[in-house]
Design a binder for these strands. Structure first.
Lengths: 168, 168
DNA sequence: AATCTTATGTCAGCCTTGTTGACATTCCAA
DNA sequence: TTGGAATGTCAACAAGGCTGACATAAGATT
Protein backbone atom coordinates (compact mmCIF):
# COMPACT_ATOMS: atom_id res chain seq x y z
CA UNK A 1 0.00 0.00 0.00
CA UNK A 2 1.06 3.49 -0.61
CA UNK A 3 2.58 4.41 2.65
CA UNK A 4 4.32 7.64 2.78
CA UNK A 5 3.50 10.53 4.99
CA UNK A 6 3.08 10.92 8.68
CA UNK A 7 0.79 8.45 10.24
CA UNK A 8 -2.05 7.29 12.33
CA UNK A 9 -2.02 6.40 15.97
CA UNK A 10 -1.31 9.98 16.87
CA UNK A 11 -4.61 10.68 18.58
CA UNK A 12 -5.15 13.62 16.31
CA UNK A 13 -6.31 11.17 13.68
CA UNK A 14 -9.34 10.14 15.62
CA UNK A 15 -11.51 13.11 14.86
CA UNK A 16 -10.02 13.16 11.47
CA UNK A 17 -11.61 10.09 10.02
CA UNK A 18 -15.19 10.65 11.03
CA UNK A 19 -17.81 9.73 8.49
CA UNK A 20 -18.50 13.42 8.32
CA UNK A 21 -14.98 14.24 7.18
CA UNK A 22 -15.10 11.41 4.70
CA UNK A 23 -18.41 12.58 3.32
CA UNK A 24 -16.96 16.01 2.68
CA UNK A 25 -14.11 14.43 0.80
CA UNK A 26 -16.54 12.40 -1.27
CA UNK A 27 -18.57 15.45 -2.20
CA UNK A 28 -15.44 17.43 -2.92
CA UNK A 29 -14.35 14.76 -5.38
CA UNK A 30 -17.71 14.83 -7.09
CA UNK A 31 -17.91 18.59 -7.47
CA UNK A 32 -14.27 19.07 -8.31
CA UNK A 33 -14.39 16.47 -11.03
CA UNK A 34 -17.19 18.41 -12.65
CA UNK A 35 -15.05 21.52 -12.68
CA UNK A 36 -12.10 19.52 -13.88
CA UNK A 37 -13.91 18.39 -17.03
CA UNK A 38 -16.00 21.50 -17.65
CA UNK A 39 -13.56 23.52 -19.75
CA UNK A 40 -12.45 20.76 -22.14
CA UNK A 41 -16.09 19.71 -22.47
CA UNK A 42 -16.98 23.12 -23.86
CA UNK A 43 -14.21 22.94 -26.44
CA UNK A 44 -15.05 19.38 -27.41
CA UNK A 45 -18.62 20.36 -28.06
CA UNK A 46 -17.51 22.79 -30.75
CA UNK A 47 -15.81 19.91 -32.51
CA UNK A 48 -18.64 17.46 -32.04
CA UNK A 49 -16.51 15.28 -29.81
CA UNK A 50 -16.97 13.95 -26.30
CA UNK A 51 -14.84 13.12 -23.31
CA UNK A 52 -13.91 9.78 -24.80
CA UNK A 53 -12.17 11.60 -27.64
CA UNK A 54 -10.33 13.81 -25.21
CA UNK A 55 -9.02 10.84 -23.27
CA UNK A 56 -7.84 9.12 -26.44
CA UNK A 57 -6.07 12.27 -27.65
CA UNK A 58 -4.46 12.78 -24.28
CA UNK A 59 -2.98 9.32 -23.96
CA UNK A 60 -1.92 9.03 -27.57
CA UNK A 61 -0.12 12.32 -27.20
CA UNK A 62 1.34 11.19 -23.94
CA UNK A 63 2.56 7.81 -25.11
CA UNK A 64 3.73 8.47 -28.62
CA UNK A 65 3.20 5.46 -30.88
CA UNK A 66 1.24 3.47 -28.31
CA UNK A 67 -0.73 0.44 -29.44
CA UNK A 68 -4.48 -0.03 -29.39
CA UNK A 69 -4.16 -2.65 -26.66
CA UNK A 70 -2.10 -0.37 -24.45
CA UNK A 71 -4.65 2.33 -24.85
CA UNK A 72 -7.46 -0.05 -23.97
CA UNK A 73 -5.81 -0.95 -20.71
CA UNK A 74 -5.07 2.62 -19.79
CA UNK A 75 -8.54 3.85 -20.58
CA UNK A 76 -10.33 0.85 -19.14
CA UNK A 77 -12.86 0.45 -21.94
CA UNK A 78 -13.65 -2.23 -24.49
CA UNK A 79 -12.02 -2.32 -27.89
CA UNK A 80 -15.38 -1.72 -29.54
CA UNK A 81 -15.88 1.42 -27.55
CA UNK A 82 -12.39 2.70 -28.21
CA UNK A 83 -12.59 1.71 -31.85
CA UNK A 84 -15.63 3.84 -32.41
CA UNK A 85 -13.81 6.84 -31.04
CA UNK A 86 -10.57 6.13 -32.90
CA UNK A 87 -12.43 5.65 -36.17
CA UNK A 88 -13.82 9.15 -35.83
CA UNK A 89 -10.48 10.70 -34.96
CA UNK A 90 -8.72 8.92 -37.82
CA UNK A 91 -11.46 9.84 -40.29
CA UNK A 92 -11.12 13.47 -39.24
CA UNK A 93 -7.37 13.35 -39.65
CA UNK A 94 -6.45 13.91 -36.01
CA UNK A 95 -4.96 10.49 -35.40
CA UNK A 96 -2.85 8.25 -37.58
CA UNK A 97 -2.64 4.46 -37.12
CA UNK A 98 0.48 2.92 -38.60
CA UNK A 99 1.04 -0.79 -38.97
CA UNK A 100 3.53 -1.97 -36.38
CA UNK A 101 7.11 -2.42 -37.52
CA UNK A 102 8.16 -5.35 -35.38
CA UNK A 103 4.69 -6.86 -35.07
CA UNK A 104 2.53 -6.01 -38.03
CA UNK A 105 -0.66 -6.99 -36.23
CA UNK A 106 -0.29 -4.01 -34.01
CA UNK A 107 -1.25 -0.46 -34.85
CA UNK A 108 0.90 2.35 -33.54
CA UNK A 109 -1.05 5.48 -32.85
CA UNK A 110 0.09 9.03 -33.43
CA UNK A 111 -1.42 12.47 -33.42
CA UNK A 112 -1.30 14.39 -36.68
CA UNK A 113 -0.56 18.09 -36.67
CA UNK A 114 -4.28 18.80 -36.37
CA UNK A 115 -4.54 16.24 -33.59
CA UNK A 116 -1.73 17.88 -31.69
CA UNK A 117 -3.40 21.24 -32.12
CA UNK A 118 -6.63 20.05 -30.54
CA UNK A 119 -4.84 18.15 -27.82
CA UNK A 120 -2.86 21.23 -26.89
CA UNK A 121 -5.99 23.32 -26.82
CA UNK A 122 -7.78 20.87 -24.54
CA UNK A 123 -4.78 20.38 -22.30
CA UNK A 124 -4.21 24.08 -21.94
CA UNK A 125 -7.83 24.67 -20.96
CA UNK A 126 -7.51 22.04 -18.29
CA UNK A 127 -4.15 23.32 -17.15
CA UNK A 128 -5.46 26.82 -16.70
CA UNK A 129 -7.89 25.62 -14.08
CA UNK A 130 -5.44 23.23 -12.49
CA UNK A 131 -2.81 25.95 -12.33
CA UNK A 132 -5.24 28.34 -10.69
CA UNK A 133 -6.23 25.71 -8.16
CA UNK A 134 -2.60 24.86 -7.42
CA UNK A 135 -1.75 28.52 -6.98
CA UNK A 136 -4.69 29.11 -4.71
CA UNK A 137 -3.90 26.12 -2.55
CA UNK A 138 -0.11 26.33 -2.46
CA UNK A 139 2.70 23.84 -2.96
CA UNK A 140 2.20 21.86 0.19
CA UNK A 141 -1.48 21.38 -0.53
CA UNK A 142 -0.62 20.15 -4.02
CA UNK A 143 1.70 17.51 -2.64
CA UNK A 144 -1.09 16.31 -0.37
CA UNK A 145 -3.58 16.39 -3.20
CA UNK A 146 -1.41 14.11 -5.28
CA UNK A 147 -0.73 11.76 -2.40
CA UNK A 148 -4.39 11.24 -1.61
CA UNK A 149 -5.36 10.80 -5.25
CA UNK A 150 -2.65 8.27 -5.74
CA UNK A 151 -3.75 6.33 -2.69
CA UNK A 152 -7.30 6.31 -4.02
CA UNK A 153 -6.47 4.55 -7.28
CA UNK A 154 -6.91 0.85 -7.88
CA UNK A 155 -3.64 -0.97 -7.43
CA UNK A 156 -3.13 -1.92 -11.07
CA UNK A 157 -4.03 1.53 -12.27
CA UNK A 158 -1.64 3.09 -9.80
CA UNK A 159 1.09 1.04 -11.40
CA UNK A 160 0.09 2.33 -14.82
CA UNK A 161 -0.04 5.85 -13.46
CA UNK A 162 3.36 5.61 -11.89
CA UNK A 163 4.91 4.12 -14.99
CA UNK A 164 3.64 7.09 -16.95
CA UNK A 165 4.71 9.40 -14.20
CA UNK A 166 8.22 10.44 -14.95
CA UNK A 167 9.10 9.28 -18.41
CA UNK A 168 9.34 12.51 -20.23
CA UNK B 1 5.80 19.50 -26.58
CA UNK B 2 5.67 22.81 -28.30
CA UNK B 3 5.86 25.15 -25.38
CA UNK B 4 6.78 24.19 -21.91
CA UNK B 5 6.67 25.99 -18.61
CA UNK B 6 4.32 28.80 -17.77
CA UNK B 7 6.65 30.13 -15.10
CA UNK B 8 5.67 33.56 -14.09
CA UNK B 9 6.98 35.29 -11.11
CA UNK B 10 6.83 34.01 -7.61
CA UNK B 11 10.05 32.30 -6.78
CA UNK B 12 9.26 28.97 -5.30
CA UNK B 13 6.37 28.48 -7.66
CA UNK B 14 8.63 28.27 -10.64
CA UNK B 15 9.44 24.59 -10.84
CA UNK B 16 6.16 23.86 -9.36
CA UNK B 17 3.81 24.83 -12.11
CA UNK B 18 5.44 23.24 -15.10
CA UNK B 19 3.12 21.71 -17.66
CA UNK B 20 4.61 18.43 -16.61
CA UNK B 21 3.49 18.81 -13.03
CA UNK B 22 0.07 19.89 -14.16
CA UNK B 23 -0.23 16.92 -16.47
CA UNK B 24 0.47 14.58 -13.61
CA UNK B 25 -2.24 16.23 -11.60
CA UNK B 26 -4.64 15.85 -14.50
CA UNK B 27 -3.90 12.16 -14.88
CA UNK B 28 -4.11 11.64 -11.14
CA UNK B 29 -7.60 13.12 -11.16
CA UNK B 30 -8.64 10.87 -14.02
CA UNK B 31 -7.33 7.65 -12.50
CA UNK B 32 -8.35 8.47 -8.96
CA UNK B 33 -11.91 9.25 -9.99
CA UNK B 34 -12.15 5.82 -11.50
CA UNK B 35 -11.11 4.28 -8.21
CA UNK B 36 -13.43 6.59 -6.36
CA UNK B 37 -16.49 5.30 -8.22
CA UNK B 38 -15.44 1.69 -8.67
CA UNK B 39 -16.76 0.21 -5.42
CA UNK B 40 -20.22 1.80 -5.46
CA UNK B 41 -20.49 0.92 -9.15
CA UNK B 42 -20.15 -2.76 -8.34
CA UNK B 43 -22.91 -2.57 -5.74
CA UNK B 44 -25.18 -0.56 -7.99
CA UNK B 45 -24.87 -3.16 -10.70
CA UNK B 46 -26.37 -5.80 -8.42
CA UNK B 47 -29.40 -3.56 -8.02
CA UNK B 48 -29.66 -2.64 -11.69
CA UNK B 49 -28.90 0.97 -10.93
CA UNK B 50 -26.29 3.38 -12.22
CA UNK B 51 -24.27 6.27 -10.89
CA UNK B 52 -27.15 8.65 -11.39
CA UNK B 53 -29.13 6.68 -8.82
CA UNK B 54 -26.24 6.82 -6.38
CA UNK B 55 -25.98 10.58 -6.68
CA UNK B 56 -29.69 11.02 -6.15
CA UNK B 57 -29.66 8.78 -3.07
CA UNK B 58 -26.64 10.56 -1.69
CA UNK B 59 -28.03 14.06 -1.90
CA UNK B 60 -31.54 13.13 -0.81
CA UNK B 61 -30.02 11.47 2.23
CA UNK B 62 -27.79 14.44 2.79
CA UNK B 63 -30.43 17.11 2.50
CA UNK B 64 -33.46 15.55 4.09
CA UNK B 65 -36.68 16.68 2.44
CA UNK B 66 -34.95 18.56 -0.38
CA UNK B 67 -37.00 19.63 -3.39
CA UNK B 68 -36.62 18.39 -6.94
CA UNK B 69 -35.36 21.79 -8.02
CA UNK B 70 -32.69 21.84 -5.34
CA UNK B 71 -31.55 18.45 -6.41
CA UNK B 72 -31.40 19.52 -10.06
CA UNK B 73 -29.09 22.38 -9.21
CA UNK B 74 -26.85 20.26 -7.05
CA UNK B 75 -26.61 17.45 -9.55
CA UNK B 76 -26.38 19.68 -12.60
CA UNK B 77 -28.72 17.68 -14.81
CA UNK B 78 -32.05 18.35 -16.48
CA UNK B 79 -35.31 17.67 -14.75
CA UNK B 80 -36.16 15.03 -17.36
CA UNK B 81 -33.00 13.16 -16.64
CA UNK B 82 -33.44 13.35 -12.89
CA UNK B 83 -37.10 12.49 -13.18
CA UNK B 84 -36.34 9.23 -14.92
CA UNK B 85 -34.01 8.24 -12.12
CA UNK B 86 -36.38 9.37 -9.37
CA UNK B 87 -39.27 7.53 -10.96
CA UNK B 88 -37.27 4.31 -10.74
CA UNK B 89 -36.26 4.89 -7.15
CA UNK B 90 -39.81 5.78 -6.14
CA UNK B 91 -41.26 2.78 -7.99
CA UNK B 92 -38.80 0.52 -6.18
CA UNK B 93 -39.72 2.04 -2.85
CA UNK B 94 -36.37 3.62 -2.07
CA UNK B 95 -37.48 7.23 -2.29
CA UNK B 96 -40.66 8.95 -1.25
CA UNK B 97 -41.86 12.23 -2.79
CA UNK B 98 -44.26 14.14 -0.57
CA UNK B 99 -46.23 17.14 -1.71
CA UNK B 100 -44.74 20.29 -0.21
CA UNK B 101 -46.48 21.68 2.86
CA UNK B 102 -45.94 25.38 2.35
CA UNK B 103 -45.79 25.23 -1.43
CA UNK B 104 -47.79 22.33 -2.69
CA UNK B 105 -46.19 22.48 -6.14
CA UNK B 106 -42.97 21.29 -4.67
CA UNK B 107 -42.10 17.73 -3.89
CA UNK B 108 -40.06 17.01 -0.81
CA UNK B 109 -37.85 13.99 -1.20
CA UNK B 110 -37.04 11.42 1.45
CA UNK B 111 -35.36 8.06 1.60
CA UNK B 112 -37.47 5.16 2.82
CA UNK B 113 -35.95 2.55 5.12
CA UNK B 114 -34.88 0.56 2.08
CA UNK B 115 -33.46 3.68 0.49
CA UNK B 116 -31.44 4.44 3.60
CA UNK B 117 -30.15 0.89 3.61
CA UNK B 118 -28.82 1.13 0.09
CA UNK B 119 -27.44 4.61 0.62
CA UNK B 120 -25.56 3.44 3.69
CA UNK B 121 -24.17 0.48 1.81
CA UNK B 122 -22.95 2.65 -1.06
CA UNK B 123 -21.55 5.33 1.22
CA UNK B 124 -19.71 2.81 3.35
CA UNK B 125 -18.09 1.24 0.30
CA UNK B 126 -16.90 4.64 -0.80
CA UNK B 127 -15.77 5.58 2.69
CA UNK B 128 -13.67 2.46 3.04
CA UNK B 129 -11.55 3.51 0.11
CA UNK B 130 -11.47 7.15 1.10
CA UNK B 131 -10.49 6.23 4.64
CA UNK B 132 -7.67 4.03 3.40
CA UNK B 133 -6.42 6.81 1.13
CA UNK B 134 -6.61 9.36 3.96
CA UNK B 135 -4.76 7.04 6.30
CA UNK B 136 -2.08 6.32 3.75
CA UNK B 137 -1.55 9.96 2.92
CA UNK B 138 -1.83 11.47 6.38
CA UNK B 139 -3.70 14.46 7.85
CA UNK B 140 -1.66 17.16 6.23
CA UNK B 141 -2.06 15.61 2.80
CA UNK B 142 -5.79 15.41 3.34
CA UNK B 143 -5.99 19.08 4.13
CA UNK B 144 -4.15 19.83 0.91
CA UNK B 145 -6.33 17.45 -1.03
CA UNK B 146 -9.45 19.25 0.12
CA UNK B 147 -7.97 22.67 -0.57
CA UNK B 148 -7.03 21.86 -4.14
CA UNK B 149 -10.35 20.18 -4.90
CA UNK B 150 -12.23 23.14 -3.55
CA UNK B 151 -10.19 25.52 -5.65
CA UNK B 152 -10.93 23.43 -8.71
CA UNK B 153 -14.71 23.72 -8.48
CA UNK B 154 -16.78 26.18 -10.47
CA UNK B 155 -17.62 29.22 -8.37
CA UNK B 156 -21.32 28.58 -8.06
CA UNK B 157 -20.79 24.92 -7.25
CA UNK B 158 -18.24 25.84 -4.62
CA UNK B 159 -20.90 27.92 -2.96
CA UNK B 160 -23.28 24.96 -3.00
CA UNK B 161 -20.54 22.73 -1.66
CA UNK B 162 -19.70 25.07 1.15
CA UNK B 163 -23.31 25.51 2.11
CA UNK B 164 -23.59 21.75 2.43
CA UNK B 165 -20.34 21.60 4.24
CA UNK B 166 -21.09 21.84 7.89
CA UNK B 167 -24.78 21.49 8.42
CA UNK B 168 -25.00 18.26 10.18
C1' DA C 1 2.70 -26.89 -43.25
C1' DA C 2 -0.82 -26.82 -40.26
C1' DT C 3 -2.64 -25.02 -36.30
C1' DC C 4 -3.16 -22.12 -32.33
C1' DT C 5 -3.16 -17.57 -30.51
C1' DT C 6 -3.05 -12.63 -30.51
C1' DA C 7 -4.20 -7.97 -32.20
C1' DT C 8 -7.31 -5.56 -34.36
C1' DG C 9 -11.53 -4.28 -36.72
C1' DT C 10 -16.43 -4.40 -37.44
C1' DC C 11 -21.44 -5.33 -37.16
C1' DA C 12 -25.52 -5.62 -34.40
C1' DG C 13 -27.96 -4.78 -30.42
C1' DC C 14 -28.65 -3.28 -25.67
C1' DC C 15 -28.26 -0.05 -21.58
C1' DT C 16 -27.70 4.24 -18.89
C1' DT C 17 -27.79 8.80 -18.79
C1' DG C 18 -27.44 12.92 -20.74
C1' DT C 19 -29.92 16.32 -24.09
C1' DT C 20 -34.23 19.25 -26.40
C1' DG C 21 -38.85 20.23 -27.32
C1' DA C 22 -43.68 20.14 -26.50
C1' DC C 23 -47.41 20.04 -23.56
C1' DA C 24 -50.30 19.34 -19.15
C1' DT C 25 -51.19 20.24 -14.41
C1' DT C 26 -51.10 22.56 -10.24
C1' DC C 27 -51.12 26.49 -7.66
C1' DC C 28 -48.75 30.77 -5.77
C1' DA C 29 -48.84 35.64 -6.37
C1' DA C 30 -49.74 39.99 -8.48
C1' DT D 1 -58.18 36.50 -13.28
C1' DT D 2 -54.10 35.80 -15.22
C1' DG D 3 -49.17 35.09 -15.48
C1' DG D 4 -45.57 32.42 -14.29
C1' DA D 5 -43.19 28.96 -11.45
C1' DA D 6 -42.64 24.08 -10.19
C1' DT D 7 -43.27 19.77 -11.57
C1' DG D 8 -44.37 15.81 -14.42
C1' DT D 9 -44.62 13.29 -18.72
C1' DC D 10 -44.00 11.85 -23.50
C1' DA D 11 -41.14 11.47 -27.50
C1' DA D 12 -36.94 11.50 -29.85
C1' DC D 13 -32.16 11.54 -30.08
C1' DA D 14 -26.97 11.07 -29.00
C1' DA D 15 -22.81 9.66 -26.61
C1' DG D 16 -20.50 6.18 -24.99
C1' DG D 17 -20.44 2.33 -22.19
C1' DC D 18 -21.41 -2.96 -22.71
C1' DT D 19 -21.75 -8.07 -24.84
C1' DG D 20 -21.51 -11.37 -28.49
C1' DA D 21 -20.20 -12.93 -32.88
C1' DC D 22 -17.37 -13.05 -36.66
C1' DA D 23 -13.39 -11.70 -39.95
C1' DT D 24 -8.64 -10.94 -40.99
C1' DA D 25 -3.86 -10.81 -40.59
C1' DA D 26 0.14 -12.29 -38.70
C1' DG D 27 3.08 -13.99 -35.09
C1' DA D 28 4.05 -18.39 -32.43
C1' DT D 29 4.02 -23.24 -31.83
C1' DT D 30 3.90 -27.87 -33.00
Amino acid sequence: MAQSGPNHSSGENLLFLTDEQLRKGIEAMFFAYRGFTADPDRILEEYGYGRAHHRALHFINRSYGTTVNNLLTTLGVTKQSLNRVLRGLIADGLVEARVGRTDRRERNLFLTEAGQDLERKLAEAQRVRMRAAYRAAGPQAVAGFRQVLEAMMDDDIRRTYQSLKDNR
